[in-house]
């Protein structure tokens, strides 16, 4: 609503140059621009200024020399990441997990939001929502401890149960494949409640008139969801999807580290870029190598975002970010 003046202008005069566009805005939309200013400044100071630090990735850092006085070493800092195919395996794992988190997570959130919105009892809905939100506030360190007490071989809850019904114990901590299920499960448990809020807000924003009209036309409960709720959530979904794709190659360090720790047996299926970097640079902290990884993640993330945005723009221009 608020950017109507600008839209009108762009639509009518889109042949004019961008500069005159800006000048027009400066003249006629001062208040709006002023409202944007704080976040623009925030973005500039916290996201653009620090980009100077990219240069660290190409230096052999030294405290006396600082950023620009340290010797330039070219791409040497990237070597450890790409040696012996590590980068590929890590990138694949990182993307694999993030895709699961994004799609399974979104599915759960939307499902939960729809269910919550359909609950009639107000008190029951609030209680349910609060309970769903609780895991979000449990620190990952504690989650790691919980998981260990549930999964450990000798004393874990699951293995105690298996023993009591006469079944064989299951050794979670030396079975890599099971972690492809456990890690997403823990992530879902932890993030669904919080992520539901956005979708719930979007659902509550759908005009009631549409539903009423549909009910008069005789839709069933499932049809209501299928033909009204889900399509209305599409814009929210696309924007959230695009935003999360930007960090597709950034792993959730604490989730993986707290659950798996330094258990080399499981690395084949659980090692992501962030845990790898932590592990190898823990002994000899190296700013150049750390920056190199950050840069690699940012570049791949940016490419991913641009690519997906391009595809979406082709299919459905209204939902693209830019």
């Amino acid at each position: 609503m608020s950017n109507t003046p600008r839209r009108m202008r762009s639509a009518s005069l889109n042949k004019r140059s961008k500069l005159s566009d800006l000048l027009y805005d400066l003249k006629h939309n001062k208040a709006l621009l002023l409202m944007v200013l704080p976040s623009a400044l925030h973005l500039f100071v916290l996201s653009y200024l620090p980009m100077v630090g990219i240069y660290y990735a190409f230096t052999n850092y030294n405290y006396r020399g600082g950023l620009f006085g340290s010797p330039f070493v070219g791409f040497a800092n990237f070597k450890f990441l790409f040696a012996s195919g590590t980068a590929w395996r890590l990138t694949a794992n990182t993307i694999f997990y993030n895709l699961i988190f994004i799609f399974a997570g979104t599915a759960f959130r939307i499902a939960a939001a729809i269910m919550l919105s359909e609950i009639i009892g107000n008190l029951f809905r609030r209680v349910t929502q609060t309970i769903m939100l609780l895991p979000h506030f449990v620190s990952m360190v504690l989650v790691g401890v919980f998981a260990y007490n549930i999964l450990s071989y000798e004393t874990g809850v699951i293995n105690n149960f298996l023993t009591s019904i006469g079944a064989d114990k299951f050794d979670f901590y030396s079975t890599p494949w099971i972690w492809r299920l456990i890690i997403p499960a823990v992530d879902l448990w932890k993030t669904t409640g919080y992520g539901t809020i956005l979708y719930l807000a979007a659902i509550l924003g759908i005009s009631n008139e549409i539903y009423e009209a549909a009910v008069i036309d005789g839709v069933t409960f499932m049809q209501k969801i299928r033909y009204i709720t889900l399509p209305s959530l599409k814009p929210t979904f696309t924007i959230l999807l695009l935003m999360s794709l930007g960090s597709l190659i950034r792993g959730q360090f604490d989730l993986f580290y707290q659950l798996v720790g330094n258990n080399g047996l499981l690395f084949g299926s659980t090692d992501i870029i962030d845990t790898y970097v932590y592990r190898v640079l823990r002994v000899t902290p190296n700013i150049g190598m750390g920056s190199a990884v950050g840069l690699y993640q940012s570049v791949v993330g940016a490419l991913m975002l641009l690519g997906v945005n391009y595809i979406i723009r082709r299919i459905e221009p209204d939902n693209a970010l830019f």
Partner: peptide
């Protein structure tokens, strides 16, 4: 909400401080 690695965190903080 971003949960970056320790390294990334160190870096970010470092970069920010460095800027100033």
């Amino acid at each position: 909400m971003k949960r970056n690695s320790m390294v990334a965190l160190v870096l970010t903080l470092m970069l920010i401080t460095l800027t100033f």
